[in-house]
Simulated scan of single mutants.
Amino acid sequence: MVKRRNEAGSLTRAPVVQTHIEAARTFNRGCALLALSVLADSAMEHYRGSFANPAMFAPLVSSSGALLAGLHGSRDHRQQMHRMRHAAYLTAAATGVAGAAFHFYNVTKRPGGFSWNNLFHAAPLGAPLALLLSGALGTVAEQLRDEPVHEPQLSGMPAGRALTLLVSAGLLGTAGEAALLHFRGAFQHRAMYAPVCVPPVAAVLLVHAALGRPRERWLTQLWLRLTTAFGFAGAAFHARGIARRQGGWRNWSQNLFAGPPLSAPPSFSALALAGLAALRLRETEK
């Protein structure tokens, strides 16, 4: 048991709770969901590209490793870094960096170079960055397990602050990719504005929590839960979009490739789950 002061200044007793271990496990769950989204998306898109370059198999292997690491870590209560999980996350992050370079080259080598048309129709820049983010979040989750129980630190700052800033950057980047693709679709449905409105607000609230005084933030928690639900709702909207194409789900082998990407929206849910874990950790810091 440890002694803590309440708001009135009196001493109270509370059990020592390894909050950072629970945060690490939640991060592992979020990384698993994000890796699953990357795996499904890259498998479909690279299959459509006939795996013309052998390097196109790399994200499938690395995202599968990150997915397995996330599932394993979500059930691990130990305060100790797992070397194989850590290696899988580092591999995913490195593959994401390499993939971003390949996709950037694919955009710039086309006629017109770095233009709106090529951003719309060439290799998507945001896809490998999602794999990088999955690996990065998993890596810090493993590092978090090796930190002291009471005051975990990451990159020289309190772990909760560092993680909330990292998740907010991920939400903004994912929202930017969604904005680009929905702009290509001319925002034909009003719901297509949601990815450029809901997650950025969550990102701003997380930045405010990181820079402000540690305390309970019910609005940020509520908005992150809304973002989690929004990600799964987005997958349902995309499934409806596929069903409305000619042949619907009976013609799934064509419409899955031609319709809206079914695996993209859950990435918001994965990041929102990680944001909730980071926020809980931030609220316990001094």
Rank of each mutant, 00 (worst) to 15 (best):
T284K: 08
A264W: 01
P128D: 04
Q188F: 11
A8C: 07
L133Y: 03
D146T: 14
S42G: 05
N28G: 11
R29V: 11
H121N: 15
S42T: 14
W116Y: 12
P152S: 04
L206D: 04
N255K: 09
A264I: 07
A94Q: 05
R190E: 12
H208T: 15
V198A: 07
A175K: 03
P15I: 07
A87S: 12
C197D: 10
A202M: 07
T26G: 10
A159L: 00
E151F: 08
F51N: 09
R110L: 15
T174D: 02
G212P: 03
K109Y: 10
K3H: 06
R225Q: 04
V107P: 03
L256F: 11
C197F: 12
N53Y: 14
P260N: 07
A123C: 10
Y89V: 00
G30F: 00
Q246I: 12
H46E: 07
L154S: 05
T95Q: 07
N251Q: 14
A175E: 01
T284R: 08
E7N: 09
F257P: 02
H46Y: 13
S168G: 06
L133R: 02
A239L: 13
L172G: 01
L166D: 02
V207N: 04
T284Q: 10
G185H: 13
W252Q: 06
R280S: 09
R240Y: 15
W252R: 08
R85E: 01
P195C: 03
L125S: 03
G30M: 01
G176E: 03
A243E: 04
F183Y: 14
P265N: 07
Q246L: 12
A210M: 12
S269R: 00
V97G: 02
A229W: 08
F57A: 14
A243D: 04
V2T: 09
S63I: 00
A179F: 09
G259A: 07
L71Q: 04
L34A: 14
L180R: 11
S115K: 11
G73L: 02
V201Y: 00
G185S: 14
W218Y: 08
L165C: 04
T284Y: 00
A229T: 09
L206T: 06
V140G: 00
N255M: 09
T228M: 13
T164Q: 06
S42Y: 06
G138N: 05
W223T: 00
M44C: 06
A52D: 15
R145D: 08
A52S: 14
N106V: 00
T26Y: 00
H77M: 14
F232D: 09
A264C: 07
Q254Y: 13
S134D: 02
F237S: 08
K109L: 12
S63L: 01
P214L: 08
W223C: 02
A58Q: 08
R190S: 15
T164F: 01
H238N: 12
T91L: 15
L166Y: 02
